[in-house]
């Protein structure tokens, strides 16, 4: 993971000012986890989106402004939940360590 750009995957062509981005990396003892699946749940706990992590453990969502829960599924691991707030024009950056 050392030296990787924050967010990793390029946002070229995306008007960041118009999006409420939630992104980050899934790690286990500091090492990126792939494959893992990250689910975006709305404030009622309802599923909104899911992405597999990249080879470098990264994920990204274009959410609506507000409160969300991220749920991480990975082999040999119970689901891990993490709350996050998305704001238009900003990037919420998280590292989720499965430990």
């Amino acid at each position: 993971m050392c030296g990787a750009t924050k967010g990793g995957v390029s946002l070229d062509g995306v008007d960041v000012a118009k999006e409420a981005i939630v992104q980050g990396v899934v790690t286990r003892s500091g090492e990126p986890v792939s494959p893992a699946y990250v689910r975006l749940l709305d404030r009622s706990g309802e599923f909104t989106a899911e992405v597999p992590t990249s080879a470098t453990g990264q994920f990204r969502f274009f959410a609506a402004p507000g409160e969300w829960t991220l749920r991480v599924l990975a082999p040999q691991n119970d689901a891990v939940d993490r709350k996050v707030v998305a704001t238009r024009g900003e990037i919420a950056e998280l590292e989720i360590d499965l430990a």
């Binding site: 995306v14 709305d42 599923f47 909104t48 989106a49 969502f61 274009f62 959410a63």
Partner: peptide
């Protein structure tokens, strides 16, 4: 679709750009 897309709060699944 997800409740937010249904209601018109989102235009696409949240792993895609919204414009």
């Amino acid at each position: 679709r997800s409740p937010d897309e249904f209601a018109g709060r989102l235009m696409a699944p949240a792993h895609l750009p919204q414009e």
